[in-house]
Design a protein around this nucleic acid. Sequence first.
DNA 1: TTGCGTGCAAAGGTTTTGCATGGCA
DNA 2: TGCCATGCAAAACCTTTGCACGCAA
Lengths: 139, 139
Amino acid sequence: MASSVQYHTKNYDDMLAFLKSMPGKHLTAQEICAHFSKRKKPMGMTTVYRQLDRLVAQGLVQKYNLENGESACYEFTGQNGSSSDPNCFHCKCVNCGKLIHIECEEIKRVEKHILDEHDFVVDKARTVFYGLCANCKNK
Amino acid sequence: MASSVQYHTKNYDDMLAFLKSMPGKHLTAQEICAHFSKRKKPMGMTTVYRQLDRLVAQGLVQKYNLENGESACYEFTGQNGSSSDPNCFHCKCVNCGKLIHIECEEIKRVEKHILDEHDFVVDKARTVFYGLCANCKNK
DNA sequence: TTGCGTGCAAAGGTTTTGCATGGCA
DNA sequence: TGCCATGCAAAACCTTTGCACGCAA
């Protein structure tokens, strides 16, 4: 399915380069579009979405669905998808929006537990813990 | 803020009773609206959303934001908010959309671990593990 | 030349808001 | 009687799709 040839375009390069230059940042389609609107030749919203879909399909970019009604966020995650950061989960502060990467044995064990006991394969790249960060919980 | 008096209405009672009668079920605003359209006097979409907002604010109902573009889901969780289901997390299959409740000690420990070691308070109600369910992972 | 990439406009869907009316207290 | 609740329509938003034109190979 979808075996059509993909052309190599300037938009593709620029999009990938931009996302790569913002490691750990979660960008909305709008923010990305705004960035490119400062270029000589802006990138249309439609193209932004289509490029992002492609990058997600290729495993180079991760899509996060945050609060409903808000727009989805995109982040460059690596050359080869999930294998680049095998034990990394994310925590997002619902108050300030801060995103924290966590990587430790405990998390690894939970993943194994959910698989063994609940028969469910967790996709770490898609999973985000929501809550309050150190700063915000003390308010 | 929002200190206005709340009236006690039939819609409020019916909505709460309906959600209570579906424990563990995740219902969209549309499904709820459809249910009440079979009543003598249907409940408008606007009212459904407003009642749900109220119930969420009161802590009786939990709102889940799943995939973007899909509608949010609502679930009755208890008289006193999160304390009724203290160790419950959710797993959503990204393939078939199935939502699984998991509740066990292991999860409880992770929550504590993230708090102790990473200084982050996890909001279980907002957090969803994405991955593949038993059926879909064997394809 | 072929067929994917692009952009505009329009459609699709969910959720919110404005406003006049109805119902609780 | 006062004020919140309701419902209809319309708006606001994010995202997708149709279609004609542009551009890579």
